[in-house]
Every structure is written in structure tokens, then in C-alpha cells.
Amino acid sequence: METALCLVVGCLFTVALYLLLSKHIIRMLLGVVLLGNGVNLLIFTAGRVSSIAPPLVPAGAETPLTDVANPLPQALILTAIVISFSFFAFLLVLAYRAYQDLGTDDTDQMRVAEPEDDGPPPLGY
């Protein structure tokens, strides 16, 4: 299973990076979502897929009776999912507002912060 997951993670990252390399904000946003999923799966796989029993302690027992799935990556990923969603929403709104103000979703034309004709700095003291 882990080998197959490695392949999936590789594919997720490939597509995510490919989308992030494009010049259009919308494509990049899709890339960000895929990147988040890729990272989550990477953490999950790195914690090994030894058992598919949910990490629960049965009622009346002190510790899990059988082998259970590794709980630590699950806890890490669970918060990561929510965080990456908030982050994604923020980026989405940022892109949207940028589009409203600049009228484009092409990153090459978004040069407010770093204008193209930025001359050399003042040479005085």
C-alpha cells in the first residue's frame, strides 16, 4: 500500500507544481489545494500504513487491544487540513481582490509592488 501511496503522492506533487508554475492565479490556486493534499498524504504515508483499524481505545480497555493505525500523523494532518483550507480561502480572496483592482489574473501583469521600470536606488547618503 505504501508504495502505491508514494506514487500517488508523487503524482499529486507533480501536478501541483506544474499548476503553480503557470502564470494564472486561478491555476495556481488549484495547485495550492493539490499541494496541501500532497503534503497531507506524504505525512500520512511517512507514518506507515500498518493497520487499518481506527486509533480508538475500546470501552473498558486501557490501551488499544489490537494494532491500530498510527494516530500521530492523523492528528497532525487533521489540523493541517483546516489550516490549509483557511490559507486557501485567504489566497482565493486575495486573488479575487487583485483581479478586481488590477483587472487581470496574469501574474506577469501584477507589478504594483515591484514595478518593471524600477530605476537604480538614490546614491546619496
Binding site: 483546516v82 483557511s86 480572496v93
Partner: peptide, 13 residues
């Protein structure tokens, strides 16, 4: 926090 934060985002959009 999650209810408030995400609802706020969704409503804003």
C-alpha cells in the same frame, strides 16, 4: 473558532 472563522469566510464570499 472554526465555526466563526469559516462561516465568516463563506459569508463574506
Amino acid at each position: 473558532v472554526v465555526v466563526g472563522g469559516i462561516t465568516s469566510i463563506a459569508l463574506a464570499l
